[in-house]
Design a protein around this nucleic acid. Sequence first.
DNA 1: CGTGGTCTTGACACGATTCAAGCCCCGTGG
DNA 2: CCACGGGGCTTGAATCGTGTCAAGACCACG
Lengths: 252, 252
Amino acid sequence: MQDLTPPLAKSGLPPCVLCQVRAIGVCAKADDNTLAKLERHKVYCSYPAGSTIVYAGDELKYAGTIMAGVACISHILEDGRRQAIGLMHPGNFLGRPGKDHAVYAIEAITDVTLCGFERKGFERLLLKAPELNDRLLEMMLNELDLARDWMLTLGRKTARERTCSLLVHLVYQQNSSIKDRTSSEDLIVDIIMTREQFGDFLALTLETVSRQFTLLKKDGFISPVGKTTFAIPDFRALIEEAGDDTDGDGLF
Amino acid sequence: MQDLTPPLAKSGLPPCVLCQVRAIGVCAKADDNTLAKLERHKVYCSYPAGSTIVYAGDELKYAGTIMAGVACISHILEDGRRQAIGLMHPGNFLGRPGKDHAVYAIEAITDVTLCGFERKGFERLLLKAPELNDRLLEMMLNELDLARDWMLTLGRKTARERTCSLLVHLVYQQNSSIKDRTSSEDLIVDIIMTREQFGDFLALTLETVSRQFTLLKKDGFISPVGKTTFAIPDFRALIEEAGDDTDGDGLF
DNA sequence: CGTGGTCTTGACACGATTCAAGCCCCGTGG
DNA sequence: CCACGGGGCTTGAATCGTGTCAAGACCACG
């Protein structure tokens, strides 16, 4: 986010009122006045799949919303051990109001487009616009719940349960209208990342992830469709296999 | 928190202006008007060590600040697997604005006293008092960072590193003025909980925790002082042993 | 002086990692 | 066109860390 080259020309940016992502972003509740201010300062920037958006330790110059693509926040120890701690989708907020430097790295898993604001300005606006502050609080509370659910996954679930958990999470992200779905047609999930990245989320090695996939295939929970996509014949069964008590949340 | 019996008589409650905890609580930035409203509706309630403050699934009637003692938030699977996901100290906020029912259980580790507000009223106040909202956002962002650091601990650290991590965390909580401490006098840490609870935080069994303590004693990182207290001859060394790159944060 | 809870320690089992080999697929260059 | 090389994936065998089960010690309390 600190590397804004090349920002798209402002004149070319789609206007906020037409923005599809706004309904679920920080700006969801912003009034006309606040929205106008955001609009005046927004910049779009894009990152190719695999690139790093923010390095740990970087000065945090920007904050913003994911417009398209999927990014990953991760925490890395000096000796190379890595733990992915957040999977960020369109509408999600990137940045950390109140901190000057990034603690975590952010990487683009797929191609990512961001709608960014200069951080200091955004923080000032946050103080003046309660609806913005309120919405951000709401989003951060959801992130906190997500992180806490994930802690259970990391701490107490087996490799198979973890693998299913992330699959379930991805299904929810990719099929927005799942809750009311009763039809029996197969769900399709695209795991978008490599086995290694998959393992980074679950604290598993790429070999273990691979083994779990073969087992899940053998047991009929998933069946390969494309290179990175699987069909899920029985989503309820997959949820069950993830060991979750609280199903249907889209959370871990 | 839903079980407020017996609330102390309101007339007997210490006034907010004299409150020691306020400096670090949600109400830290509240203006006189907001503070007066909070004061009018606050209730103190106490829970003995070991008791449950909120059960998962409970209706969330209250939100509030820990005045004294230490509590623990935890996530439990049906089959009994348990993961503690938050260690809450005086000043910390308990409750989840925006949700009607508790997702996690909260238990008192030591005797706990809470300063609580009726949740709906608190949420209404949150909308009207930007300083309150802003402060809560700040606190929740810190909680989020804490949870994410913890994910690294759970996912990627060894039993020894985890044990040291929690010890370091407890030291920071119990010795407020550690940052500028250069003196070589021994630090004392009280682990306040049982081996089992300790393990619930670290996703370890009580046996493993016990073994790690024995090893850490043998290696001179800790030495027993009382039943639940240890002296730490070399705090830097303990931090090093915790495997943290970012030391000195009081975080995991 | 027993009783129950907590802690320690040992022996063994098991799940995930590590190390290693080989496969598949795709892009590149001869 | 095919050979080559590399990245990602799969699979196997051995290893290691932590869990499980079990026994006994310690200590507070009735």
